[in-house]
């Protein structure tokens, strides 16, 4: 599904962010990227939808180098959820999702709205569909953000520390939602430093240290 082949990235200041990363995520698999902060987890994640362009090696999505895909098409196939939860501040929850369906997915106005409502229902946010982001709790916002990232049925969902900005009591809802998505066979790569989360949701753990993938093991084994 996604294959990293000798992926390397050097920042402009000369420091290496990623060094010769090899790895493969299979369809329907959930991979958790673990490691100390600054290790390159987020950078590795961003090479998939080309928010970061690799300098060496390549990232392959379904047999095609991501650099050979049109950027907007690539990004429709790869959903992304940020740590900072950047819902569009001027739009209600349902409009946040509908905007993507309409402007990136090309659906009609009515259809966008309908499917947006459906997605909000799936993430348990149907009753707050009309609220602006500022009126929602962090956990609620993150669930809307996940709906927004999932609404075009991407083949892969990338999540960059989706729960780290949330208060502990709000984490559970988001975690349950991700577990549901995983159970339904969504391919996911999640950057997280939460061991419990990784064990609960992920199939495999990738340990990233100093820009290198140093370990790749089944999540259950890591728990033991």
């Amino acid at each position: 599904m996604i294959r990293f082949e000798q992926v390397g990235k050097t920042w402009r200041d000369g420091s290496a962010a990623l060094e010769a990363v090899d790895g493969e995520v299979r369809r329907g698999e959930v991979v958790a990227l673990c490691g100390p902060s600054g290790a390159g987890k987020s950078t590795l994640l961003r090479t998939v939808n080309r928010l970061v362009e690799v300098d060496r090696g390549r990232v392959v999505l379904d047999g095609t180098d991501v650099r050979r895909l049109r950027l907007d098409r690539l990004r429709r196939r790869v959903g992304f959820v940020f740590q900072s939860i950047d819902l569009f501040r001027h739009l209600s929850a349902v409009d946040n999702v509908a905007l993507i369906l309409r402007r990136a997915g090309g659906l009609s106005r009515g259809e966008s709205r309908q499917r947006a409502e459906l997605w909000l229902d799936r993430v348990g946010m149907a009753d707050r569909a009309g609220s602006l982001p500022a009126a929602l709790s962090g956990g609620q916002q993150q669930r809307v953000a996940i709906a927004r990232a999932m609404c075009l049925d991407p083949e892969v969902l990338l999540l960059d520390e989706p729960t780290s900005a949330l208060d502990p009591e709000l984490v559970t809802g988001v975690r349950t939602l991700l577990r549901d998505l995983a159970a339904r066979g969504t391919t996911m790569i999640v950057v997280t430093h939460e061991a419990g989360f990784a064990r609960g949701v992920a199939d495999r753990l990738w340990q990233v240290t100093n820009g290198r993938l140093v370990a790749d093991r089944p999540a259950r084994e890591a728990a033991a």
Binding site: L51, L74, F80, D86, A104, G105
Partner: peptide, 23 residues
């Protein structure tokens, strides 16, 4: 406007014009 708004819009597959006019 925070950079995150635009990064989010880009990562969700919106193109230049919709990002400008809708976000």
């Amino acid at each position: 406007i925070p950079d995150g708004q635009i990064e989010a819009a880009r990562s969700l597959g919106l193109r230049r014009w919709p990002i400008l006019s809708r976000v």
